[in-house]
Write a protein that binds this DNA or RNA. Structure first.
Length: 200
DNA sequence: CCTACGATCTGCT
DNA sequence: GCAGATCGTAGGG
């Protein structure tokens, strides 16, 4: 069995959200909510958002109460409510003052699939369990209560379990649902594992 | 204060 | 394939 360690702060605090977004593929998100079983999954799909020059980013050229979290130092969660129903989980990157973040769009279940099925109201494991940004958040028990949470804490954290992802296994495409961003909508900042069923 | 709408998902046609 | 759900946020009056 390979090593398993929590990702260090410096992993997130680089001035290159696109590289962080790619390198997060293969890492493992873990949660332990309300002292229950640990639930976790391998990140299979991400999207990069850059506050400085990307119109698709919530923090693009503006600082508001909601986006303030993205301006903090990397290594914390940015969770927001989408369409009044879905809690979307993002990982804040870069240094304080630079509002960059990675949206996690899908995971492949690893630990605690029983609890994940309960949270999703499902009775059999399938990609519907965790493939999709709203779905994985619900499966892991992540809500806006966890906005600004430090990703090295014992409730919500990200591990490197030694899975090696080669460049050849990564596919890039444009991001989902950001047509409003005009030219920036064309940026190839969505990344996912090729031939992995757990992709949205 | 008021209005419009969104980094989505589900169920029904 | 499409409409409805459902509410916080942002921006305008």
């Amino acid at each position: 069995m390979s090593r398993s360690k929590i990702l260090p702060k410096q992993f997130y605090r680089r001035d290159d959200v696109v590289s962080v977004s790619r390198e997060l593929l293969g890492k493992v998100i873990c949660t332990r909510i309300d002292g229950k079983t640990v639930t976790s999954g391998i990140i299979t799909e991400t999207e990069a958002y850059c506050g400085r020059n990307d119109k698709a980013c919530h923090a693009y050229q503006k600082r508001t109460p909601r986006t303030e979290v993205m301006y903090r130092s990397g290594g914390i969660a940015y969770v927001y409510l989408c369409y009044g129903i879905h809690h979307l989980f993002n990982i804040v990157t870069n240094i304080e003052g630079q509002a960059d973040a990675v949206l996690v769009r899908a995971i492949q279940p690893v630990d605690g699939t029983g609890l994940m099925l309960d949270r999703r109201g499902m009775d059999a494991v399938s990609p519907k369990l965790t493939a999709g940004p709203g779905r994985l958040s619900q499966a892991l028990g992540i809500t806006t209560d966890y906005n600004a949470t430090d990703l090295a804490e014992k409730t919500l954290w990200i591990e490197d379990r030694g899975l090696d992802i080669s460049e050849g296994e990564i596919e890039a495409s444009t991001r989902i649902g950001v047509e409003y961003a005009g030219k920036d909508a064309k940026r190839p900042w969505r990344f996912y594992l090729k031939e992995n069923a757990w992709v949205s």
